[in-house]
């Protein structure tokens, strides 16, 4: 096996390295998306059941979850986040299995999530004057995804 590898042409080696980094990239995206999915699902349930235990001791956190911005046309805002993270996860899995065309879609979706997170951060900081830790986690995750897409060449 070792001899086979050493015989490999330089171009072939390059390709496997690129393939490996792409695999790692999609793995990270999938894991981040799973965490985001769990977080957003949790927030959705918390909102639907009206349980503000999730806030813990964070002051004003229930103001965020109970605010007018916590729903859009009656649907909890967090539910949109859960759907978005689920799609990101699906894309990452398809990317792992070598499906082409996933990247462009992923870039568009993560850009939208990045902008939405910016808007929600703005709402928390300047409109509601209160922060909820789980919402911040979701924002952090989408910022991380956006950063990953920009920074990792395998994504392009």
């Amino acid at each position: 096996m070792a001899s086979g590898k050493s015989n490999m042409a330089a171009t072939g080696e390059m390709r496997t390295v690129r393939g490996r980094s792409r695999t790692i990239f999609y793995w990270i995206v999938a894991i981040i998306a799973l965490i985001g999915l769990a977080d957003a699902t949790f927030l959705t349930i918390a909102h639907l059941t009206g349980d503000d235990a999730v806030c813990g001791s964070a002051a004003g956190c229930s103001e965020v979850l109970g605010s007018a911005y916590a729903t859009m046309r009656g649907i909890p805002t967090a539910a949109f986040g859960a759907v978005a993270y689920f799609i990101v996860f699906s894309m990452a899995v398809l990317g792992l299995f070598g499906y082409a065309g996933v990247k462009k879609f992923l870039i568009a979706l993560v850009t939208a999530m990045f902008l939405a997170s910016l808007y929600f951060l703005y709402l928390q900081a300047f409109v509601l004057h209160a922060f909820c830790p789980y919402c911040l986690l979701s924002a952090a995750l989408s910022f991380f995804l956006a950063g990953l897409l920009v920074a990792v060449p395998a994504a392009r």
Binding site: I45, F89, S90, V93, L96, F97
Partner: peptide, 24 residues
């Protein structure tokens, strides 16, 4: 396999979410 994984994760999420919702 990818679709199987996606379907399993989706169903798991919905299943756990409804279970937790009902319990709560």
């Amino acid at each position: 396999l990818p679709f199987l994984i996606i379907a399993i994760v989706g169903l798991l999420t919905i299943g756990i979410a409804t279970a937790v919702y009902k319990v709560k």
